[in-house]
Design a protein around this nucleic acid. Structure first.
Lengths: 217, 217, 217, 217
DNA sequence: GATGAATGAGTCTTCATTCAT
DNA sequence: AATGAATGAAGACTCATTCAT
């Protein structure tokens, strides 16, 4: 029975919440999502299983909180980069910007890929609504920024482009994360086509996608 | 205990294998993937759970075999359509062709979306290798066809385009399949951005993607 | 964290003890026994969970104290009524008296029904002894009163009658408190036999019981 | 992994079902109801936990099945005894008959005492309805028999008497089953009043109750 | 004394897989 | 080959009780 220092003040509690999220983040970075259990997270933080339920009512809420935080970070980052981006620079640099913003965000990608298929299941209306409204806000704001940077986009197309960008990100991320056995199979030189280098391939795909979105007269 | 007629000859065994796959296919079409349990498949085929393990050593092998068959079908279909496609027709019709080929292939999309994240886990090297080599062949062949149809593509870029097409398909498919609760949240008019109509959106995205791949000078 | 005024003097502590018991009483009146958790009681009193354990070492001790208080009240009430009861009035009115004394004592009945099966577990010898000795005193006194009112009873039979009265009360109370699902089942007219109206049925049963106890020559 | 002989034929399965029920019965005889968990029953039968769920879909269904069987037995027994009972013999022997029928049925009494408060919770409408209809049938039939033996009872009063008999049984049974600590407290000679000898006391109470039911002019 | 965060044993239940029949 | 009963490792979650603050 190792009693952890108690988080009494609200500040401390927020900190512990973050500690849990960080541990979850670490865990996700190392192991497959299927091994991502409450028990594993608890062990990682060095807290009892029950304690986690003091901070997150259900497993799914923990997942979602994790993604929510990462989304927040990512959108902040992306917005900053977009604001710095000169409007005259061609879209090529936009894809580079996006790819750069995703570097060191492996777990963000993992969770993002699982959003609709896993994370958004087994949650209540309240939680779902709160999450979606938050997301809507961010998506709209960033969508607007895209429209400013890419003047050929008409109203609302920024958000739409963002949606397709996400599709490409999610798709490629999944395809690039193979199981250990498959990775071994792909070592064969002939299999090169399937050895997807995520960042490089994403940049390539994004360029094409954005190109297509903007150049289409 | 109704003992099913035994499959003795190899031919019969192959036939039973197919019967299982077909039943699994039907099941997947009706129910969510989480309800896709061995027990459910067995019940659907009218065979015992244990029997399934005579034909597929693990659950994942069954999944993979299912996808393998569907991939076979889809590539055959797509190749046929590509061969019929006149080389002079602009790429716009290529996206339409692709979208058309995916109509009535809901389960194919479901499984394809789960390939790397679920299906390729818990299988042995042999199975993985066999699957990947088969896929390589198909991908290469269809990639070549794309290069023929889209002359601006250089050697090998057909396969690469195919890869990005799949990424977009997988990404959009996942995004368009929301849980019941989320669906309810999305009923709000303001949430329209998140209510993704798969086929329509895919066509839009594919056009842009292919456009970008080809027009890029 | 709102720290409640500390109870320093013994008098204050007794007062707080009572406050807790009263809150627990209220809670039990509203909710089913299964929802009667320490957390719920604490919330109701406006004290912290831990504080409750300063006044009651175990959950069961709290229960028992609660029942003890209610028993005290009830015996006081019943004794008063018995004293007012004219010795010449037939026993019929005794059952009425008893039933009347139980009106508005729902939670008393609930706890009484759980005495041996739940409340008296997980307590120490001391507590058990104290409780039982107190009860003995009350039972004996009221038993005596019964013997005075019902002259046909021989020495000690008053207590014995009391015992059987309690058995009937406990039994009927339990039988009349059905779960929601069962209540729905009992809506069927054919199920009328099982729809027990506690007070009415108790009066009926008590009459018979007391009748039998007294008229038996 | 001790694989138990498999129950293949329907007959064997019924037998295993009974084995489980018997084990549950034994367990209940030895330990308190709170310790009566699926895990404990499984260990007792020497089966895996999961196996129990093949025979009983939920914990509550197991409980109810247990009681259902015992009720069946008891009513059969009681009806037989009532049929043999000469109508001319006074009701005194009726109480004796009832008490006799309850000898060696400790666990039946335990479960019966928990029927409304525990067993009938957390079950679905179907199960509840099936149980109640079965019970209704038995209660009605036995109620009729009582009316035949006790001619002073008017139509329907047999069932009503049965109801009160059950209340007394349940009440006394609970009161007579004390926890270990309380039992120790009751060793004091002064506590004799609380040392309830179930059978003896039930006979006494039943006599009075039946007397009251019948003699009431 | 008061607090409430932390604990962790304990509960039911699911399901892929095994193996006696 | 076919069967399906048996397995048991997980898994999420609850709650009385403890104890650092």
């Amino acid at each position: 029975m190792v009693v952890k220092q108690r988080a009494r003040r609200d500040e401390e509690k927020q900190h512990r919440r973050r500690t849990i999220l960080l541990a979850a983040r670490d865990l996700l970075e190392e192991r497959a999502f299927t091994e991502f259990t409450i028990a594993a997270v608890a062990e990682r933080v060095g807290l009892a299983k029950g304690t986690l339920f003091l901070y997150f009512e259900t497993k799914e809420k923990l997942y979602l909180a994790l993604l929510e935080e990462m989304l927040q970070d990512w959108f902040t980052d992306i917005d900053l980069r977009l604001d710095k981006l000169d409007a005259d620079i061609p879209m090529q640099s936009l894809s580079t910007t996006l790819v750069d913003s995703l570097k060191n965000r492996k777990l963000f990608l993992t969770l993002l890929s699982l959003l609709e298929s896993v994370l958004e299941h087994n949650i209540d209306y309240e939680t779902a609504a709160k999450f979606k409204w938050g997301l809507l806000e961010k998506v709209t704001a960033t969508g607007k920024r895209l429209e400013q940077r890419l003047p050929s986009l008409s109203l609302g197309e920024g958000t739409r482009l963002l949606l397709h960008i996400r599709a490409l990100i999610t798709g490629l991320h999944q395809m690039s994360n193979t199981s250990t056995v498959v990775a071994k199979v792909l070592e064969d030189p002939a299999m090169q086509v399937f050895r997807i280098e995520f960042e490089q391939e994403l940049e390539y795909g994004l360029k094409a996608l954005i190109d297509g979105f903007t150049k289409k007269v």
